[in-house]
């Protein structure tokens, strides 16, 4: 039997927090561009608000804590939080909601726990959950994606909706926003309409594409590509995304095969909502995710099961944030019980 021969010196990538974080940011670019393309100016405005507030509040807390400001701001971790938050929030949410989410993410979830490396929970997801449970109505302000409508809301209209709550002439909040495909399916199934009739409904039908939802499938696909690039660059470990996607695939396939009229297909689950963003960018957070190989398998699979459970039977349309936070809580336990055996040592138990 032949083994691959390798001899020293083993060259390893020059990895620092800074380079890793910036590679993550680069990998986010294609999916973010797609989100902007499909949902319009709102995404860009949100991104600007979260970036400014996250960096500012990080600097403020660091100053209060007498820690070096420049180094921490430059490492890009606050920017990633800002990006994830902006991508998770609906494009037309009022500005103050975005500000609250950013402040909670950075000040409470990250800095009060001790800053980068010490936070138990994923900061962006904490910020998202805070506004999700506090302002459920505003969190439905999704615009219809390009494809379902033929043009974006103009920049000035978007700006005035976000900053002044002023709607364009002759429109109501219901005419410029639209439920997400996932939310629509959930509501319609709740009303005992089956999936096929919802997909061909003359109003809601425009939201759906052959795979999942218009726009959503491309956004998810591009996040998937960005994620694969990160795995290739060894920025993230492959176990968490694989086990998360696999468990989501298996469980959603099981239910949709057993009753395809009320349970959406596995493909729909994989390519709608925040699935791919979660798989590669949120669940793989090096700080709040599990760090042992076996722990990572369990962590990813747990998120998959929870996401499916919340999406299908829970009160919220998408369950990514709650699933991540719940599994974050399990991480210390997972890491404790899944320590790999030290090479050359017998089991001590």
């Amino acid at each position: 039997m032949l083994f691959r021969k390798a001899s020293s010196p083993f060259i390893s990538a020059q990895a620092s927090v800074h380079t890793i974080m910036y590679q993550v940011l680069y990998a986010l670019i294609p999916g973010t561009l797609a989100a902007i393309y499909f949902f319009g100016w709102g995404v860009l405005i949100n991104l600007a608000i979260t970036a400014i507030i996250c960096l500012f509040s990080e600097a403020l807390v660091l100053k209060l804590r007498n820690r070096p400001i420049k180094v921490s701001l430059k490492d890009g971790s606050a920017l990633i939080t800002a990006c994830l938050l902006a991508l998770a929030l609906p494009p037309l949410v009022p500005w103050w909601l975005t500000v609250i989410a950013s402040i909670f993410a950075i000040v409470i979830a990250k800095q009060l726990y001790g800053g980068l490396g010490f936070n138990l929970f994923n900061p962006a997801m904490v910020g998202y959950i805070v506004v999700m449970i506090s302002f459920p109505r505003e969190m439905t302000y999704w615009t219809a994606p390009l494809g379902a409508v033929d043009h974006w809301l103009s920049f000035s209209d978007t700006f005035s909706v976000i900053f002044y709550g002023a709607l364009p002439d002759q429109s109501s909040i219901d005419s410029i926003t639209m439920a997400t495909p996932m939310d629509t399916l959930k509501t319609q199934i709740g009303l005992e309409n089956d999936i096929t009739s919802t997909r061909h409904h003359k109003v809601y039908g425009t939201l759906f594409s052959n795979i999942s939802g218009k726009g959503w499938q491309w956004i998810n696909l591009l996040f998937l590509l960005g994620g694969l690039w990160m795995i290739k660059m060894k920025v993230i470990d492959w176990r968490i995304p694989v086990s998360f996607l696999l468990s989501l695939l298996l469980i959603s396939n099981f239910f949709s095969v057993s009753d395809y009229a009320t349970y959406p297909s596995a493909l729909f689950h994989l390519f709608s909502g925040g699935t791919m963003l979660c798989a590669f960018f949120i669940a793989t957070d090096p700080v709040s995710a599990s760090t042992t190989p076996r722990g990572r398998w369990i962590y990813g699979a747990g998120i998959g099961v929870l996401v499916y459970t919340i999406r299908t039977w829970g009160g919220y349309p998408d369950g990514i944030a709650f699933a991540i936070i719940l599994m974050n809580m399990a991480v210390p336990l997972l890491d404790y019980y899944t320590q790999p055996k030290t090479y050359g040592k017998a089991d001590t138990e």
């Binding site: 390893s12 990895a15 180094v71």
Partner: peptide, 14 residues
């Protein structure tokens, strides 16, 4: 006594 600033940890790459 203010504890000395923590240097950002290096992230290990597998």
């Amino acid at each position: 006594r203010v504890s000395p600033p923590v240097k950002p940890a290096e992230v290990a790459v597998q």
